[in-house]
């Protein structure tokens, strides 16, 4: 495919970077899909409350574990930016450490979410609230896995010597998608775990 890839070269001009722009639109689409589900959740909860129905039994959803996810993602936001900055400075050891740490935080978030799902004891075919809780957390896990895979691919490309001070698009794009997935959770945390 070498011949093909060289034919596809962009004109010799500095424009907003292609991978970054593409990821920006993809992140926008992902956010809209996620907030589409969240909006259904919030509107159905409001309708249930207006009808005087109980959404979740008191005390089933605890703030503590979900708060840990919140702060883990805050830490991960710093580590992923650390990776971007390290690549820009051509500091590869720091970039590897930062990418590995971010991936580890992603795994920790997944683990904590799984704990929360099991801890609640909800059933998919239960009440409307329980069903939508499953849909919300399930959708979030899908996007989280997507962000971790994107990050893992970026890490592998970095390990194979790609990216550098003049070419940090891939890492910056992975970081952008990571931030989008973090935003999803932070909004969810307020909408589901704090306001219940």
């Amino acid at each position: 495919m070498t011949a093909t890839t060289t034919q596809l070269a962009a004109p010799a001009i500095r424009r907003p970077r292609t991978v970054l722009v593409g990821t920006m639109f993809a992140s926008g689409a992902a956010l809209m899909a996620y907030f589409g589900v969240l909006a259904v959740y919030v509107s159905e909860r409001a309708a249930a409350r207006d009808a005087g129905e109980e959404w979740f039994p008191e005390g089933v959803i605890e703030l503590g574990p979900s708060g840990w996810i919140f702060w883990t993602l805050v830490l991960a936001a710093f580590t992923v930016q650390w990776a971007v900055q390290a690549i820009r400075n051509d500091d590869r050891p720091n970039a590897y450490i930062a990418l590995a740490l971010t991936g580890m935080f992603g795994a920790a978030v997944f683990n904590q979410l799984w704990f929360i799902i099991n801890d609640t004891g909800f059933a998919l075919a239960g009440t409307q609230g329980q069903f939508l809780f499953f849909v919300m957390t399930g959708t979030y896990i899908v996007f989280l896995i997507g962000a971790v895979v994107f990050l893992a691919l970026t890490t592998m490309r970095a390990l194979f010597g790609q990216f550098g001070p003049s070419q940090d698009d891939g890492v910056a794009a992975a970081a952008m998608f990571w931030h989008a997935v973090s935003i999803m959770y932070w909004v969810t945390w307020i909408a589901i775990f704090v306001t219940k």
Partner: peptide, 21 residues
Amino acid sequence: LTLPVAIANIAVLYIDLSGGA
């Protein structure tokens, strides 16, 4: 920005139809 919202609707309906109540 619009079609993902419809995809979200489809996901909710699909899951509801498959394993929900």
